[in-house]
Design a protein around this nucleic acid. Structure first.
Length: 506
DNA sequence: GCGAATGAAAA
DNA sequence: TTTTCATTCGC
């Protein structure tokens, strides 16, 4: 089913095999709403990967799988030892699936950089159960990788010391040890290649608000033509307001300056004075000397780490943080969505929203999602998410609207819970949550719900630093739709816990 | 080769 | 703690 195409034979994504999809947990009520499996279109030849060259980290395991076992079985027998790629992690798997599923059509967003950003946002908002499935799969991949390449050890190459590293190349090669046993890598041995030091982002990602908007649309279930339309409207409205951003897309050359300006402008607009971050974090301010390479979006780290980290480990040049993201509205009923293919062993899974299908996102669902959210008046800002209303989906929300919504007062926050959005801000600490709350961004704030999610601690990503976590539905923004969600959340959490019990601990 | 994202793993 | 690299592919 997921048979790799020749071009794929060097990748591990190719190892996905429907037959290997776990036949487990499959809790009867497995609720998954955002699961992209990899409906690989084998008829579509894949382009050669541009993936980074193995550097010197290629590894010929001491007792590798036989060459035929190697992913590069195509390579000539006399070929130098093949690079063994690392096993993909959960997000990489998710991203691949996300892309393959065409969740965001190329006509909407052709840039894979942006797609990655969107995937990242989506990932951050993924329900724990969904993430669990991906983590489980990643774990399987790791295990398979281990079996295949028993001698493999990840040997990252030190690129930071560009010249010295070359001088140090013996050391590098040494550490690569097994990897260079074939003396294969171009940089191996005497092949001094000035390795550029690790790149650092010099420009902010293009049109972050737009990416966030797309993610939020996806999370509301939009797909196909509806998604196109919604995004087109979004773009159009921004244009009408003279708010660029979209102009940098669709083939238009993006110069760093242009992107900086576009993103800065977007940031400026998106961040109203009321929600602007503290003065210490001025947009476009200093570049951090040691750039925190990225924010930790979904990983909830230990309290210690979070306490030591700044409130916004944003990009070095732009202070656009995920705190600035629009809210995601989960305005649908999980039960209306198809079950996870992983749990269902569904080999021919298409992502629930009918990727690429020019139809309503709700096609395939008998009933328009009827979540408890529907009982509440949708936020004007989230009108695009008003899946409950009808099949005609208003997508009038703008980044500014969403920003406005961010400024709305929030309800008391339960310290027990955090949300993907707060995770986006890389925080698990209460202080950061407070920060989020100041921004009005994020934590849905229903009254304290005595939900003890400690049983989900088996999910490594939600570590002990957090007393518990919320399913992503906790993203109301004080829009008046929060309180009544308790029951819904409780039931969800209970179900999730049930599911979690079946998960292998990571 | 870079960019985007997150996460595993090594340094 | 920091860095690399796993994925993708247009530029």
């Amino acid at each position: 089913m997921f048979e790799p195409t020749p071009a794929e034979t060097t990748t591990f994504t190719a190892t996905f095999d429907s037959s290997e999809i776990k036949t487990e947990p499959a809790s009867p009520s497995s609720q998954t709403f955002f699961f992209f499996d990899t409906p690989v279109d084998e008829t579509k030849p894949k382009r050669a990967s541009h993936k980074r060259k193995p550097a010197s980290s290629s590894v010929s395991p001491s007792s590798p799988g036989s060459p035929s076992d190697s992913p590069n079985s195509d390579s000539p027998p006399s070929a130098p030892a093949a690079h063994i790629p690392r096993p993909p992690n959960a997000f990489i798997l998710f991203r691949s699936s996300f892309i393959r599923a065409g969740a965001v059509p190329a006509r909407v967003e052709p840039s894979h950089a942006s797609l990655s950003a969107i995937a990242g946002l989506t990932w951050a908002a993924l329900p724990p159960a969904e993430k669990a499935a991906w983590h489980r799969r990643a774990k399987e991949e790791r295990e398979k990788h281990r079996e295949r390449f028993p001698g493999y050890a990840f040997r990252p190459r030190n690129r930071t010391t560009s010249t010295s590293s070359n001088n140090n190349s013996d050391g590098v090669g040494g550490t690569d040890g097994e990897g260079d046993s074939g003396g294969t890598s171009s940089s191996g041995g005497g092949g001094v290649q000035e390795k550029p030091k690790r790149r650092q982002r010099e420009v902010p990602p293009a049109d972050r608000p737009r990416n966030a908007h797309i993610a939020s649309l996806l999370l509301t279930g939009l797909a196909g033509a509806a998604l196109d339309e919604a995004i087109a409207r979004f773009d159009q409205e921004r244009r009408e307001r003279g708010e660029g951003g979209v102009e940098v897309r669709f083939g238009v050359v993006e110069t760093p300056e242009g992107r900086v300006k576009a993103a800065a402008d977007a940031c400026e607009r998106a961040t109203s004075p009321a929600v602007r971050r503290g003065a210490k974090e001025k947009a476009g301010s200093v570049k951090e000397p040691k750039t925190p390479r990225r924010r930790k979006a979904s990983s909830v780290r230990s309290p210690s780490s979070s306490s030591s980290s700044p409130a916004s480990p944003a990009s070095p040049t732009m202070e656009l943080t995920t705190n600035d993201l629009p809210p995601f509205a989960f305005d649908f009923d999980l039960e209306s969505f198809p079950p996870s293919p992983v749990d269902q062993h569904n080999t021919a899974f298409d992502w629930p929203y009918g990727s690429g299908v020019p139809s309503s996102p709700f096609d395939g669902f008998d009933t328009v999602p009827s979540s408890p959210f529907n009982s509440y008046p949708p936020s004007p800002a989230l009108s695009h998410a008003s899946a409950s209303s009808s099949r005609s989906i208003s997508t009038s929300a703008s980044w500014e609207d969403l920003s406005l919504s961010l400024a709305m007062p929030s309800l008391p926050l339960s310290p027990l819970r955090t949300s993907p959005l707060s995770a986006c801000s890389s925080m698990s600490s209460l202080s950061s949550i407070s920060s989020d709350m100041e921004l009005g961004c994020g934590l849905g704030a229903m009254g304290a719900m005595p939900v003890d999610l400690s049983s989900m601690s088996c999910m490594g990503m939600y570590d002990a630093g957090v007393d518990g976590l919320l399913p992503p539905y906790d993203l109301d923004l004080g829009l008046g739709c929060g309180m009544g969600m308790d029951a819904y959340l409780t039931s969800y959490v209970e179900e999730t816990q049930t599911q979690a019990e079946g998960l292998v601990a990571w």
